[in-house]
Amino acid sequence: MFSLSNEIRGYFLSYANFKIILTQTVIVAIGALGMTLIIVSGGIDLSVGSVIAFCGVVGALLIQQGWPVPAVVLAVIVAGGLIGLLNGAAIAGLRMTPFIITLGTLGIARGAAKWLANNETVNYDASPINHWMTTADPFGWALPAGAWIALVLAVLTSVMLRSTVFGRHIFAIGSNEATARLCGVATVRTKILIYALAGCFFGLAGLMQLSRLRQGDPTVAVGVELDIIAAVIIGGASLSGGVGTVLGSMIGALIMAVLRNGSQQMGWPTYFQEIIIGAVIIAAVFLDRVRQARRE
């Protein structure tokens, strides 16, 4: 980092680049909010990238149909929530492994997105939604609207996770589901709710993706779930459940964005980026193990 030329370092630390990094963080950050709920509850969701693409296509089609903005926003979030609801119902109701179920939905949602979009991008003339993720600052809010939305949601989610009965139940289920059941927690209902709520976050992330691309692309966001999971784990959550914070996950998301942005600024080839991010994920999981060993 310190051997960089002054020119590159100067830009990397500039306000303009800071805005770009924050904007790049938004999609992973909103996804990480949902993923934090799921991972703290002891689960996992691999379908996020596909859900983002699916919801983006749904949004683009509805804009094409001339739906008003609030209705589009609501419909896209509900679409994500419905997929989450199905995931949750299969996982909690049928007692199937989250890894397998969401691996299935990963394929289904991607296929459904391509089907809806006729296997091509869905284009529309213009929409106010397009202004949410641009660094041009059309509203004069210093940061893009998407970043503000992510920030507000992060605060709300953090408070919910820490200081509400629903939030504490998420920790209880992730820590020991048998105990939660014994203590009268409605584990099945709570888990379905967790996946559905997380799905709403993924739907919103899809909307942000749509806003950034200005078109519905059914092939976008492949593998984004891995960035999101990595952000949550880097943020200190444990894959075995019961541990995790929203603040940590947000810092994790920021680290992922800085890594991507930094290596772009350095002009490193994308394969090098991939290697670095892969190594960071492994290091984070290793850290998780060390932390767990210390707790025991």
């Binding site: 009965v165 504490r168 820590s175 048998a178 105990t179 203590c183 019961g242």
Partner: peptide, 23 residues
Amino acid sequence: EEGLMLPLSLAENASLPKYKTLA
């Protein structure tokens, strides 16, 4: 395996059934 949530606090373990009355 079932009785306690070992990573969580004593308070959470002792009061999980009465969360709704405490809240």
